[in-house]
Design a binder for these strands. Sequence first.
RNA 1: GCGGGCGUAGCUCAGCGGUAGAGUACUAGUCUUCCAAACUAGUUGUCACGGGUUCGAAUCCCGUCGCCCGCUCCA
Length: 598
Amino acid sequence: MAEAKENLLMEKIVSLCKRRGFIFQSSEIYGGINGFWDFGPLGAELKRNVKELWWTSMTRLRDDVVGLEATIIMSPQIWKASGHVDTFSDPMCDCLLTKKRFRADQIEPQSGQVFHFSGAKDSASGKESIEPFSVLLLAGKPPESARNVASQFYASRGINQAVLIGERTEKVENSTRFNPENGAQLTDPRPFNLMLQTYVGPIQSEENIAYLRPETAQAIFAQFKNVHETSRQKIPFGIGQIGKAFRNEVTPRNFIFRSREFEQMELEFFIKPDEATEAIHGSVANVAEIGHPGEPQPNWGWQAWHRYWVEERVRFYEGIGLSRETLGFHHQTPEELAHYARACTDILYKFPFSKRDESGEVKGDELEGIAARSDFDLSQHERHSGKLMGVFDEELRTAWGKLTPEKQADLSARYFSTRLKYLTKSGVPQEKAELDAKEDAEGLAKGQYIPHVIEPSAGVDRLILALISNAFQETTSTDEKGKTETRTVMKFHPRVAPVKVGVFPLLKNKPELVAKAREVFQLLRGQMMAFYDDSGAIGRRYARQDEAGTPYCITIDFDTLGEKPELLNTVTLRHRDDGKQERIPIADLQGWLLARVK
RNA sequence: GCGGGCGUAGCUCAGCGGUAGAGUACUAGUCUUCCAAACUAGUUGUCACGGGUUCGAAUCCCGUCGCCCGCUCCA
């Protein structure tokens, strides 16, 4: 019941998005293409505003973050180093009976007796199948159970009273060709690559394969050295990037929430390893589990920085109209975390399609993940490229010399052990891993380390959907004739609203009103997105702007022209959310509006 | 990738073998006054696409594409 209502809401949102020009299906005239969406005039403005706000708050207004804009296609070696070539291209098998899908490398090998059948015939209808099928007899089960599974398989092929044909048995050892749950045969492993690929150069050969990036983050790591050197930033500092990314999702779903081409806003914030911070400041700051930890401090370790970025990001969402109640949080459990990650907090939004959990609460779906990724990424690129990714930290070297030998030994040992853990997990042979980790620990004593990273990574398109869902408001009223009417108002925060102000002459057929309205429109359009409209009754124009989410509308009437001399050069300013109107001089308009929409 | 439902005007939908429809939207016009007013005139369709059955297909059948739901997948 509740779900049907939520679907209805999503349908209304999708419908409004098309009707008003927020979002269209890509390639619609050719029947569309699954997982791709276009932003119409209003959607493009909305998206631009969101990206602009992110860019401004994350880079321009901060001393410690700089920007980057990298290419979508990069050396394929980047994706080997990042692990995407391995984790994004698993061979998969499907159970021929239940259609359940397995990762071929995760099927437990089984031994036992296999029953092969060459086909089956329906004893009632005479219908015949010559499709071969095999079943692994599960340990402790009677042979009849294997025949039973085969009969079910042929039943799914339309042979209900199956008489099995050509039965023979065979012993197998450690086979991964059968479903561990029912013994049914699996399809051959089929490659399953989540990265979109293309060829660089005109020859479509294996060695020319390149990938469209599945995330923007790796470009930041790959360019870390260049940015670090040219920006004259010192650790801690961050590199931000906004850009397109591509994933060949199995099932694009929920409108633009999961699509195959999408945009990300990512920050990689590089910090000192905790051992270095401790060497310099004596200890790493303790930080409260909840709440904003305040202005960054030099003695912050990764936990404080992680906490800080989670709270900074929540403030960003609050600043564009997503209140804390509409958001949810998911702290990844140790089982969910990637092996190199120390923590990951997802910021969720309660979308109309978000599911209820066991306790009946809506947690939400992911807008952004803030991950503490240790020094994994830069270390991977150092190992794969052979280029050193470490930085030299003058402050650390000076501080290290002043430590007691006991402290030095303690920090070295801890750094050695985390580096060793990383190297062995990455498949470096034990002996070499120990040598390398020892070298890293010696480097730390000389002020060298590979920075750790905190990664706030947000999806632009899903944020747009969150803003649209959040803004969508319907009110139904009944007029004096008893006619009910449903109005839709998109209550966007003025900062993200696609159109900031609508400008209307009260009447279209009075040239003086039109001329004055055009004059006011010209005055405003250079400062903000403004929209001029003179068609239809004034109420209709207000309603149209309500659906577009325009927060303010200005109407030029006869008083503007001086019919009441005291109102000369004043206009009606109408508020979207409550319909209230006020009178304001044209001379004050720019300042009044800019204060509210910036 | 599997299973189920759906696809008709910009939008919401009716029509379900015999001339392509309604509401709304949109465009132009009349109107001196603020929340989808009224009136007049007008525009809008490869009935998702391709094939088949039929004298005749939006309607029945098959395939493809897309959307929704459930599995599966989700750095």
